[in-house]
Simulated scan of single mutants.
Amino acid sequence: MPILQAKNVTHYFGGLCAVSDFNLSLEKGELVGIIGPNGAGKTTIFNLITGVYRASQGQSSIKLNDVELVGKAPNEITDLGVARTFQNIRLFKDLSVLDNVRIAFYSQANYSFWEAVSCLGRYSREEERIADLAMDLLATFNLEGVAEEVSKNLPYGLQRHLEIARAIATHPKLLLLDEPAAGMEPAEIDQLMEFIRWIREKFDLTILLVEHQMRLVMKICERIQVLDFGVTIAEGSPAQIQNNAKVLEAYLGTEGVR
């Protein structure tokens, strides 16, 4: 059974169809890319999977391990095992690196609202446990040395690593990476490719990737799906996609492929 199965997913913004009859099947452990020109509907797909948007038509279905996600709230989808990052890094920029990761562990805290308010009962023990879990995860990502730094003061590449570490703290089965190479130099992109391969193996993840950096997509993705104006125009291996006439036309225009 696929870990993710999207069928007939359609979404409108007013009278504009942003995604039309989108279908995707992901097997456990795959690393798959979604590409397409600006406005093709790539991030909309991520927002539909994570519950930020709800598919517009009744026959739309998105299942994680055969559990229907359409209609569930984002926090419920996170608890089921879906985590994501964003094109524009979304950290709690005025909080420390440690606190950014601790926040992601709080859905796993074993104390009540009143224990938290009064700081009694299990509160202190659980807070210590969560801090230890966060520090262990930071150590795994080689970020323990900057645990007390304010996150906005980190170099851009480390901010990206921190955002991914925070996503991993939710114990995902499926990780959605939205343009992780945005704003990076070529040398940083090379490091990012190795980093993505590493997190897939280390945390036994399935990864769905949206990206404009074609070098990254072609080198690390096993399959690629191409969107144009919300419609899938091609699917296949990197070699098949880079020689596909419809894909070239979508990126270069009719004149560019003559």
Score class of each variant (00 low, 15 high):
219 K>I: 08
10 T>Q: 05
203 F>N: 07
134 A>V: 00
115 E>L: 02
205 L>D: 10
224 I>P: 04
160 R>G: 05
149 E>D: 02
19 V>K: 06
88 N>D: 00
236 G>D: 00
196 I>A: 00
134 A>C: 03
193 M>D: 13
244 N>S: 14
114 W>V: 04
91 L>Y: 10
249 E>D: 12
2 P>Q: 07
117 V>D: 07
236 G>H: 02
97 V>F: 01
199 I>N: 01
245 A>N: 09
87 Q>M: 07
36 G>D: 03
230 G>N: 07
195 F>K: 01
24 L>T: 09
253 G>F: 00
43 T>M: 00
14 G>I: 07
159 Q>K: 10
135 M>V: 13
18 A>G: 12
209 L>R: 09
249 E>V: 07
159 Q>N: 09
51 G>M: 14
80 L>A: 12
20 S>W: 08
13 F>W: 07
176 L>V: 14
69 L>T: 13
208 L>M: 12
180 P>G: 13
251 Y>M: 03
180 P>L: 13
174 L>N: 03
113 F>Y: 11
55 A>V: 09
6 A>V: 14
238 P>I: 13
178 D>K: 06
174 L>I: 04
114 W>F: 10
61 S>V: 15
122 R>I: 02
60 S>L: 01
233 I>Y: 01
170 T>V: 15
126 E>H: 01
50 T>I: 08
15 G>H: 14
55 A>I: 01
81 G>M: 11
155 P>I: 01
45 I>A: 10
139 A>R: 00
142 N>S: 15
179 E>C: 07
